[in-house]
Nucleic acid binder design. Structure first.
Lengths: 242, 242
DNA sequence: ACCTGAACACCGTTCAAGT
DNA sequence: ACCTGAACACCGTTCAAGT
């Protein structure tokens, strides 16, 4: 008489159907787990199906395409980036960029999915939009300038971190070997500044690194970046006041 | 007796070999052309081979992997982004970011290749490194702060533009349809700011767009972004002075 | 409603063989 | 030295069929 616990929400006393073996949530979670554990190249519709013990085509009953599956995964990753509303706009912006970076740092292999695809750019989080627009309005931006400021902030938020967590090449050792020999080949007469800095920069700077932010975080650069951007917005606003 | 014009540099008077049919430059140019004309998904080792009328495996005589081929393509795209040295550091930085964006705008489909891959991040352009370090040194950054500033600038340079030219989904029409209905669904009581701004923002803002910068450039946002970033660096430097 | 199963048109890359 | 040719282990997605 009593429904078996395995029976799904559509289970009836008579004419019962078996509960679905799969669910959308399970598929999305499995996808994210594969990205975390195996890297981006370990994630595919087929590998998700394999991990769930079903045919690849079964996935398509729950999601219309690879793109949409990725969008769902991104939504989970960016679930809690919106700061509390009581912060001053400068602190709120700093918190937003920092929380976004922290979210990516928890799932570094997923970073390329967000910066690069229009859709998963941030699967329309209304609270993020409302919060950001409100704070920028409080700061003093209006009309077209408000839209520009919104775009500048989103660009700043996603841009740096996407870079920091860029994909390492499959043959990272070769790259390391090449870069380690790089400083010795610099012509100090033609490139004096580079000759002096290449050593200390090696391994912890854009262009001159072979690992990404997952193993070599760029905390100092990020802090400077955020401080500069927010201070710059303040400067522009105070200029416009006059 | 005379060498035929088709004979390559290794051609000898005796024991001649036929000139190679392919060349690295030709392969790289073909790859870039395919990206420009067909989009990123029209570019593959196999499609390059097809366009050149050879077997896919012939490509591997000239380049060790897909990754390296992409790095070569990126090098061509970013050939001329370094501004002239006589500019003041603020103008030099603005010119750098603007020239980078212009270079991507000429090959918008290639944008995701740069922001996302560690290697092709900018295939070690020594003049870019030297120029940037010199200007930041002139600005007043030293030691670790110089490295941080370098990374902040590269992050700012690549980050915004990568976003602006993010990949449109294959089913952009669906996205457009979804987003056009989005403003009507906003609860104005809970999200008043968004309710007011969603209309004017639609189609020309991150998250709320279905086309990228190739068709809908974000000039105003980019200008604000660059001005804020440079003004922010100035502000940080003058604070540190005291 | 939910999943199996076969099939299509692709990938990047390796390895042996030709000339 | 330079390229052909076959092969391997993958992709995302469609479509028909089962239960």
């Amino acid at each position: 008489m009593a429904k078996s616990p395995a029976t799904g929400p559509r289970g009836r006393d008579k004419g019962q159907r078996a509960a679905p073996e799969l669910s959308k949530a399970q598929i999305v979670e499995t996808g994210l787990r594969l990205i975390d554990e195996e890297g981006l190249q370990g994630f595919s519709v087929r590998s998700v199906a394999k991990a769930l013990g079903c045919y690849p085509t079964a996935i398509y009953w729950y999601t219309p395409s690879r793109h949409f599956l990725i969008a769902e995964i991104v939504t989970i990753i960016l679930r809690d980036v919106v700061p509390t509303a009581e912060l001053e706009w400068q602190d709120w912006l700093r918190a937003l960029l920092t929380r976004y970076r922290a979210a990516i740092a928890r799932h570094p292999n997923a970073a390329p999915l967000i910066g690069v695809n229009l859709v998963s750019n941030a699967s329309v989080d209304v609270d993020l939009l409302e919060g950001l627009l409100t704070k920028l309005h409080q700061a003093g931006f209006r009309d077209d300038a408000l839209i520009d400021a919104y775009n500048a902030v989103v660009g700043a938020m996603v841009g740096f971190t996407t870079q920091e967590f860029a994909m390492e090449p499959p043959d990272a050792d070769d790259l390391q070997g090449y870069l380690k020999g790089f400083p010795a080949g610099i012509d100090a007469a033609r490139h004096p500044m580079l000759a002096r800095m290449a050593g200390p920069m090696m391994g912890r700077s854009f262009i001159l690194r072979w690992q990404n932010g997952a193993t070599r975080p760029m905390d100092g650069a990020f802090a400077l970046y955020v401080d500069a951007f927010v201070a710059g917005l303040e400067a522009l606003l105070s200029r416009a006041d006059r």
